[in-house]
Write a protein that binds this DNA or RNA. Structure first.
Lengths: 140, 140
DNA sequence: TCTTACATTTAGAATTATTCTAAATCTTGA
DNA sequence: TCAAGATTTAGAATAATTCTAAATGTAAGA
C-alpha cells in the first residue's frame, strides 16, 4: 500500500530532499484548503499546528515541494506567488474583482500552438482573467 | 492621415492622459526593440535619448501606456514585469535557459475552455515554458 | 556508540521590484 | 495672466523573496 506520506517521501527523496515535519506540515496545509494560498497564508495556517515554524522555512518547504513535483507555483497577477497541490495539467481562472482562483482544464488543442521553430515546450501556463459569477451579479 | 503619434495621443486622451515627451519616448523604446524589456531596461534605453528621465517616470509612463491600451504587461516568470507593445491577442513562449521571449499566436480553440459557471472572461494569458532551439542545441 | 558530514531550520539582514510622497515644473483653459 | 490640475522627479517606503550565519537535527561509517 502506498500512503500519501510515502508518496511525499519518495518524491522528495528522488530530488535529494528529506521528509521533515515542516515539509509535511506545509504540504498538509496546501492539500487541506486548495484555495491557492500565498507563502504568507501558508505560513499563517502552518503556524496553527506548528507555532515555531518560520517564514524562511515555509519558503524552503514550498520550494522543495515545487522542485520535487508535489506542488506548482501559480502567478495570476503581479502580487505574491501562490501555491497549488493540483499536479494535473490545468490552468487558472482569476476573478479580477474578488481575487478568487478556479482551476480549469485546458484543452489539448493548446498543444496545437505554433511555436518558434525547434522550441521544446515543457509547460503551459494558462491564466484567464475576468469576473466570476458572483462579481458579475454584484455589478448590476 | 493617422500618424502614430496621433494614435498615441488619442489613446492616451481617451483614458484621461496627456501625451508627454516622456510617454512618447517610453513608447518609442517599446516599439523600437520588441524584446519584452523590464521597466529597468526601458529606463536604461530611454536615458540614451532623454538622460534626465527618472525611474518613477518610466513606471508612470508604462502604467499609462498599459491603461490606455498601447502596451501590455507580460509576466512569464516571478522576476520583473515585462512590457510589450504588441496589442494583437497573443501569448508568450519563454526559454527557461536564456530567457528569450517569443510572441506566439493563440488558437481560437482556447475560447472553448470550460470556465466556472457564469464566469465572464476578459483576457487570456498564455505562457509556454521550455527551451528554444538554440538552447536545445547547446545541451547536446 | 561516537563522530563527522551534511541537511535543515531559524531569525533577521539584504535584495529586488515596485509604489508612494512631496516638492518642483509644466500645461490647459478661464 | 492665473489657477487648477497633470506630470515629473528624487528619494523614501513597502512588499515579496532570497540570503546569511548560527544552531539543530539526522544518517552513515569508523
Amino acid at each position: 500500500m502506498h500512503t500519501d506520506e510515502q508518496h511525499l517521501t519518495e518524491q522528495l527523496g528522488a530530488t535529494g530532499f528529506r521528509l521533515t515535519p515542516q515539509r509535511q506540515q506545509v504540504y498538509d496545509v496546501l492539500r487541506h484548503k486548495r484555495d491557492h494560498p500565498t507563502a504568507e497564508e501558508v505560513f499563517i495556517r502552518a503556524k496553527h499546528a506548528m507555532p515555531e515554524i518560520s517564514m524562511a522555512t515555509v519558503y524552503n518547504c514550498l520550494d522543495a515541494l515545487v522542485k520535487c513535483g508535489m506542488a506548482r507555483q501559480v502567478t495570476v497577477d503581479r502580487g505574491a506567488t501562490r501555491y497549488c497541490p493540483n499536479m494535473h495539467e490545468h490552468g487558472h481562472c482569476h476573478c479580477d474583482a474578488c481575487g478568487t482562483i478556479f482551476d480549469v482544464d485546458i484543452p489539448h488543442e493548446l498543444a496545437g500552438l505554433t511555436l518558434p521553430t525547434g522550441f521544446l515546450a515543457r509547460h503551459f501556463d494558462v491564466a484567464v482573467h475576468g469576473l466570476c459569477a458572483a462579481c458579475v451579479a454584484k455589478k448590476k
